[in-house]
């Protein structure tokens, strides 16, 4: 059993390694999972409607069995005093940007994984733990993840987080587009709870259409930019806003898929190690072996009981 998965691991490492060293962004399409489905889903986030009630944060935690304060504590708006990022304890957070002189209300922006169409995290992962699913979600296989944090470095949106407390085998944490819920035909938890329907769930195609329809119906309300339509080759989560996205801490990204970028970074870091893939394999291998050891120890303990 252990042997078999070790073989599988080595095979994947070699495959991904070949992708990174030899091929370019096409690596994403290496596995059958990483093919973009025409009807993949997405979410359109209309930040002009959001009231910053943070119900989505609560729903996300509840749906993912993460510890949370009771719902009514979320009405406390003092959390907006500082900017927050999604982390291992909150897969999504809502930030607030002060109203400008001509505006009556502050602007609230929900942040989570963008579920890129050509995810940098997928190409960066040396064990092939992360994949782009048919329905648009970018999810990971906990059994495969070795906690190396390459995806964290690669992600242009700085999304993947790891459990800080655990130095050994920290588990990746990020928005999984509520994969388990959508599999059962339910809506993502945040989409379902949002009182304002800031978050519209639908096929990416229809969302883009709707986003442009909104812009043309209310040209005064929106800047003419659907963030995520083209950024890094397109993302499943798309944003509309009333001001330039750069002012809302959205990174200014080109239309090229990020994997190319991430490879450049990794190659840069390890410029003096030849060849870099050997190091990946070594590092990854050590981590993986340790993980397996720990797990089989745990298994043994269980068996002894």
């Amino acid at each position: 059993m252990v042997d078999e998965s070790r073989r599988k691991f080595l095979k994947t490492t070699a495959l991904v390694g070949a992708g990174i060293t030899g091929l370019s962004t096409k690596t994403v399409k290496a596995g059958p999972k990483n093919i973009l489905d025409e009807n993949r889903m997405g979410v359109l986030v209309d930040t002009t409607v959001c009231i910053g009630c943070r119900k989505c944060e609560w729903a996300c935690k509840t749906a993912h069995d993460l510890p949370t304060q009771p719902l009514d504590t979320y009405e406390d708006r003092s959390v907006f005093e500082k900017m927050r990022r999604p982390d291992d304890k909150a897969l999504t957070v809502v930030n607030e940007y002060a109203a400008r002189e001509t505006e009556q209300f502050p602007l609230n922006v929900k942040v989570q994984c963008m579920h890129c169409d050509r995810p940098a995290c997928v190409s960066a992962c040396i064990v092939g733990a992360i994949s782009k699913e048919e329905n648009g979600s970018v999810i990971w296989d906990t059994d495969k993840c070795i906690g190396c944090r390459y995806c964290m470095v690669a992600c242009p949106f700085q999304i993947p987080a790891f459990e800080f407390e655990k130095a050994w085998h920290p588990e990746i944490r990020k928005c999984d587009f509520c994969f388990e819920r959508t599999k059962e035909g339910k809506l993502p938890a945040c989409v379902e709870i949002c009182p304002m329907e800031v978050l519209t769930y639908g096929t990416r195609k229809s969302l883009i259409e709707r986003a442009h329809q909104k812009i043309s119906l209310y040209p005064d309300r929106y800047v003419n930019h659907v963030y995520g339509q083209y950024e890094v080759g397109g993302t499943s989560w798309l944003y509309l806003a009333s001001r330039d996205f750069a002012e809302l801490q959205f990174p200014k990204l080109g239309t090229n898929p990020a994997p190319g970028v991430s490879e450049a970074i990794q190659h840069g870091i390890f410029a003096y190690f030849v060849p870099p893939i050997a190091l990946y394999a070594l590092l990854g291998g050590v981590m993986w072996i340790n993980k397996k050891k720990a797990e089989s120890n745990k298994d043994k303990e269980v068996h002894h009981e």
Binding site: L187, V191, E197, R210
Partner: peptide, 9 residues
């Protein structure tokens, strides 16, 4: 909310 026509809220 889980619907195909998303042209209105």
């Amino acid at each position: 909310r889980n619907r195909t026509d998303i042209s209105k809220p």
